[in-house]
């Protein structure tokens, strides 16, 4: 029997796919799912890389296929599109909240201006804004390493792109 799923239902299923490098957020929270095209002969899931060299993309594609199969779907394609380029603005409010709770400071200044200078980043542990950039490049391509001058804890900052 063929069950027709609406795009919304598919999105709910895709919420179960977590970002392999930040497992508290789903790929949907991250804005990695560009769109779901349902209703045609085949279901199409269009995803976007965050960074060009993001090594998690292949895992994400595989995880999406696995979860859809688990829900009895087989006629689907997962495609990657790079335009328009992914931006941290696509991270949902819920996603930003989850990042914060996990101890990663979400991208602070939205928009292009943040690329030009140093960003004011609040410590996700104690909330202090007296923080200092340790390294522009952190544990993954999408994060920078900061240190809080008040609570002295180091933390990751999700870079704004």
């Amino acid at each position: 029997m063929v069950t027709v799923h609406a795009a919304d239902e598919i999105l709910e299923i895709l919420d179960l796919v977590k970002d392999p490098e930040i497992p508290v957020v789903s790929v949907r929270d991250m804005g990695i799912i560009r769109r779901v095209e349902a209703g045609g002969d085949r279901l199409k899931i269009v995803i976007t890389p965050t960074y060009s060299g993001c090594p998690a993309m292949e895992v994400i594609e595989r995880d999406i296929a696995a979860i859809l199969k688990l829900h009895g779907l087989s006629d689907f394609d997962v495609e990657t599109e790079i335009s328009p380029a992914w931006t941290t603005d696509w991270i949902t409010e819920e996603g930003r909240q989850k990042l914060h709770e996990y101890g990663i400071a979400p991208p602070a200044n939205r928009g292009k201006a943040a690329l030009m200078g140093q960003e004011a980043v609040a410590c996700p542990q104690c909330g202090s804004s007296d923080t200092v950039l340790v390294s522009e490049f952190g544990s993954t391509a999408c994060k920078a390493l900061y240190k809080c001058r008040d609570c002295l804890e180091p933390f990751d900052y999700f870079k704004c792109v």
Partner: peptide, 20 residues
């Protein structure tokens, strides 16, 4: 260590560009 991470991250971006 920070620089090790930085250079490999930059390298990874470049390899990502090269793949596309």
């Amino acid at each position: 260590l920070e620089e090790d991470l930085a250079l490999t991250n930059v390298g990874l971006d470049l390899i990502g560009q090269a793949r596309m």
